[in-house]
Design a protein around this nucleic acid. Structure first.
Length: 914
RNA sequence: GGGCCUGUAGCUCAGCUGGUCAGAGCGCCGCGCUUACACCGCGGAGGUCGCCGGUUCGAAACCGGCCGGGCCCACCA
């Protein structure tokens, strides 16, 4: 479209400096600027990080690594622009910006995509096959049944992941470059890389050595689909349909169950449950200690319906009298409250749900007659064994109905259930051996330390801190970091197998740090041979992998070279900024704070910038599917990158933003205006360009303009410093439009120096002011509009505007003297009043005024007078212009009288239209 | 149930610690090809600042209550 645009000299070869005038194109355009300047920035290494810079001068950013197997959407464009605008501001402010890029290619999304794409699945027990050829390439995964997938070793699987993600990463990089991110592409990382795995393992080993990591066999949340343990941070409460079942428990004979003990059957105890299939797992009935209805039952026992297992009736304050029947069935395990009762009341464990979410096959020991259960219990079990909780529930309900222990019919209800955020079945609670890292969830001292870290961290916006505090304060257990998945960073741990073939989990065999990364399923621990794997007297590798957050919580370490480049790490850590979404405060932000606190006794960064969501125009969170309809690339190409960046940069941190094409159009208009106004201003410079000499600025109007600009510089700088980009942008933008509409109009005749042979002082003043203003405005806009500003900069300056120093108000103030910015406003208002006359007379703005009388508020008379010749020129007042002081209280300038000179009839020119 | 954010012209939003604060842009209406820009310029119309109380000489802004929108925790009997 724009290939035939006259372009400036090749920026990479800008040594062929022509005169300024010759470098300004005849016709300006935004088209093609992205590719041209990206190429130049790459060639010139404009954003490369100078690693010799001292820590004090470095500004380091802990970039969020996007999930590359996910898709690109406008949310990426939005939040990454926020970070880039900040990075550009800091760089211009004299900081050496460490701005790496990372790719999150580790974890479940990649795992699934690779399975479907190549038709494989990971089986860590298999040996590495160096000549592996995947069964397919490019599968869509629609028929991705596990049975059809070729099992491959973990190393092979990781290699396939790397092979696939490298393509995704290329696409992301291309987009991010087109978006103008000032990333130093020499510093990028992958969370799947050997280095990242080594970092994760080393940090874990240190946690272990300090006693911060430990393993425990305990009941925990379990996803039956993925068959893995799940951490608190990965939970999502969702509505889930269920039904209350009223179920009768009968007082056990021989106990003093109620008043009827002497006579016939005592009254049954009726509980309500949504999970009758857990009746075989019941270990107690629990009511509140103060609940009068159940006082007489505490200390007695009852028998479960159908199975006849004798369980105690106990008191615990967590039981809520107004929930259900007020007395609850405690099972192992229906929910986290059950776990707490089980632990605190020291109840036995009777698990009936297996890791696949189905009821166990073998008849549980406590349901046999020998164990005291009713004789029919064992016969009932085969009807439940192997069933999903859903089918088992139906079977149990039928049996309850038949036995008469179901009181009334089930009443359906909508309840909340915990789900794994990626799962579609409610979580079960299963007992398993897992790794944990202490996070303050069961340690008030550590929790207080972490809360103190939260106070130390500068959140932008500040109110986001409460989310951190809510989360830390609400932790109910340590961080479960092990996952029963195959793909991920393995625990760098082996266990000895004793002579009887038993695995000794208490004496783990650990690698040294210089051996990392290790894969215990493939590598052999020191002192053993490969043949000893899995045999008595030998060893086994820990089969689990780490939670992805266990790796992601170390992004500062991965990006900063913690393991391999201590010199770099010392220059960038603790980092300055963590940009991220507010939805992952509880995961990414918190876990990173935790790891840094444990490893370094410090925060990982000083500032956290939280971006909001993109909302559809109808105010709903923009769904991925909708986001994909508008591809980021298409958006950038349609409107131009600067335009889209303008939209993103207009949104405050922490606040959701509407997806507004209108804002992008405004941004595009602004960027074009920057090009045009700059071209115009530079046209006054002649062959030597605009002289930048503050001493030449002598005219009151010029000084007033610069005084106003100095204010803008100060406001913009303050806003950027406090991460309030929109405020900075707005200040500059507002000034810029009045600069174009009023100041440029007022001074253009003077700046032309029309007719004069000698350069007058007034003309020189205008030109010097234009030069000062232009070079200031371009730098103020540069963080948001990197392409348009760089384009203009190249017309008359050497080097990149993005390496130019951020403007200060000092020089402007020196040129402005004690001028009042209000003078420009008053002159602009006078000009507007003259325009209004012409507008109302429906004549061209070019129409001359032979006589005019302006009514000016008393306090503005002096101002307008001092700019009178400019006002006359811009308003085309050829005759008398008189100023009249307005009555007290008047605030606007009005034209009392104006004589318009009718335009000459236009000479026909060229072929007549139509 | 606890907490946070938010409600200003048709739309998207500014209005910082109470006193030119009733604003900007878009959209709309009208005019205009002006030696930068028609991807433009100029002018205009548009709002009892969610509602009700209170504090104050004065509140869109502060306090209380209510209503609406969004989000985060907690909630599986």
């Amino acid at each position: 479209m724009s290939d035939d645009q006259p372009t400036t000299s090749s920026p990479a070869a800008s040594d062929q400096a022509g005169s300024a005038a010759s470098r300004v194109p005849d016709k300006v355009s935004l088209d093609g600027l992205e590719d041209r300047w990206n190429a130049a920035w790459t060639a010139d290494r404009t954003y490369s990080f100078d690693r010799t810079a001292s820590r004090a001068r470095v500004y380091s950013i802990d970039t969020p690594p996007p999930t590359v197997s996910g898709s690109l959407h406008v949310g990426h464009v939005f939040s990454f622009t926020h970070t880039d605008v900040d990075a550009r501001y800091r760089r211009m402010s004299g900081r050496e910006v460490f701005y790496p890029m990372g790719w999150d290619d580790n974890g479940l999304p990649t795992e699934r995509r690779v399975q479907n794409y190549f038709g494989v699945r990971c089986d860590p027990s298999l040996p590495y096959d160096p000549d592996l050829t995947p069964p397919q390439v490019g599968g869509d995964g629609k028929s991705g049944k596990a049975a059809d997938q070729l099992p491959v070793s973990r190393r092979n699987f990781i290699e396939l992941c790397e092979r696939l993600t490298i393509e995704d990463e290329r696409e992301f990089e291309s987009l991010f470059r087109y978006l103008g991110l000032s990333v130093d592409w020499d510093h990028h990382y992958q969370t799947i890389s050997a280095e990242s795995r080594a970092v994760a393992q080393q940090a874990f080993l240190r946690n272990l050595a300090r006693g911060e990591a430990y393993q425990a066999e305990a009941p925990g949340l379990w996803d039956v689909t993925f068959q893995t343990a799940v951490a608190q941070a990965e939970l999502e409460a969702r509505d889930y349909p269920g039904a209350f079942h009223r179920v009768a428990f009968h007082p056990a004979s021989g106990t003093a169950g109620g008043d009827g003990a002497a006579g016939g059957a005592a009254a049954p105890v009726v509980i309500e449950t949504t999970r009758p299939e857990l009746i075989p797992a019941v270990v107690a009935l629990v009511a509140h200690p103060d609940d009068e209805r159940y006082q007489h039952l505490f200390g007695t026992t009852v028998r479960s319906p159908l199975f006849g297992v004798e369980v105690p009736v106990l008191a615990h304050p967590l039981a809520e009298p107004d929930k259900g029947a007020g007395i609850a069935m405690c099972c192992t395990f229906g929910d986290l409250t059950d776990v707490q009762w089980w632990r605190e009341l020291q109840l036995p464990t009777r698990s009936v749900i297996g890791r696949d979410g189905r009821l166990v096959r073998e008849t549980p020991a406590w349901l046999t007659a020998e164990a005291g259960a009713s004789p029919s219990a064992a016969g009932l079990w085969p009807q439940l064994a192997g069933k999903t909780t859903f089918s088992a529930r139906a079977a149990v309900v039928d049996a309850l109905r038949a036995s008469g222990d179901l009181d009334g019919e089930p009443v359906s209800t909508q309840r909340k259930a915990n789900f794994y955020e990626r799962g579609d079945k409610p979580l079960e609670i299963v007992t398993s051996r897992q790794w944990y890292i202490r996070n303050g969830g069961r340690d008030a001292g550590l929790r207080d330390e972490l809360l103190a870290r939260g106070k130390e961290l500068a959140f932008h916006p500040d109110f986001m801190r409460v989310r951190y505090e809510n989360w830390v304060g609400g932790l109910n257990g340590d961080w479960l970091i092990s996952r029963q998945r195959f793909f991920g960073v393995p625990f760098p741990v082996w266990y000895p197998v004793d002579a009887d073939g038993e695995v000794d989990h208490d004496a783990p065999i650990l690698p040294t740090e210089d051996q990392l990364p290790v894969d215990p399923s493939a590598d052999v621990p020191p002192g053993y041979t490969a043949e000893q794997r899995g045999v008595a007297g030998g060893f086994v590798g820990d089969p689990d992998v780490m939670d992805t957050w266990a790796t992601s919580s170390l992004t500062p370490h991965i990006a900063g070279g913690w393991r391999t480049d201590p010199d770099l790490f010392a220059r960038v850590f603790p980092m300055d900024l963590r940009p991220q979404g507010h939805d992952i405060i509880r995961t990414w932000l918190f876990s990173t704070v935790l790891r840094a606190h444990l490893e370094h006794g410090s925060l990982p960064w000083g500032n956290a910038a939280l971006s909001g969501w993109i909302l559809d125009p109808d105010r709903k969170k923009m769904s991925k599917s909708k986001g994909n309809v508008v591809t980021p690339r298409g958006l950038l190409e349609e409107h131009g990158t600067d335009a889209v960046r303008y939209w993103a940069a207009s949104a405050r941190l922490g606040t959701d933003a509407a997806f507004e094409v209108g804002q992008m159009k405004i941004g595009r208009r602004l960027a074009i205006k920057v090009l045009n106004a700059s071209k115009f201003a530079l046209s006054f410079g002649g062959d030597d360009g605009l002289a930048i000499d503050p001493a030449l600025v002598t005219e009151p109007l010029d000084r007033a303009m610069l005084a106003g600009l100095a204010d803008v510089v100060e406001r913009s700088t303050a806003a950027f410093e406090s991460y309030e980009t929109p405020r900075a942008l707005e200040a500059t933008e507002t000034f810029f439009w009045s600069f174009c509409d009023d100041y440029l109009e007022l001074v253009k005749d003077r700046a032309y120096g029309a007719g004069a042979v000698e350069l007058s002082a007034a003309t020189a003043s205008a030109r010097a002011a234009l030069g000062l203003a232009l070079e200031t405005l371009l730098r103020l806009f540069a963080p948001v509009l990197p392409f348009a500003t760089e384009e203009v900069w190249s017309w008359w300056k050497e080097g990149s505007v993005h390496r130019a120093p951020w403007p200060t108000s000092d020089g402007l103030r020196a040129a402005a003297g004690d001028a009042d910015p209000g003078l420009l406003a008053a002159a602009g208002a006078a000009l507007a009043a003259l325009r209004k006359v012409k507008s109302e007379a429906k004549v061209s703005m070019r129409t001359e005024i032979s006589r005019a009388e302006l009514v000016v508020p008393a306090d503005a008379v002096a101002a307008v007078t001092s700019a009178e010749s400019d006002v006359r020129a811009a308003g085309r007042v050829t005759g008398e212009l008189s100023l009249v002081a307005a009555p007290e209280g008047a605030e606007t300038i009005e034209v009392r009288l104006a004589d318009l000179v009718p335009a000459e009839p236009k000479a026909p020119e060229g072929p007549a239209a139509g």
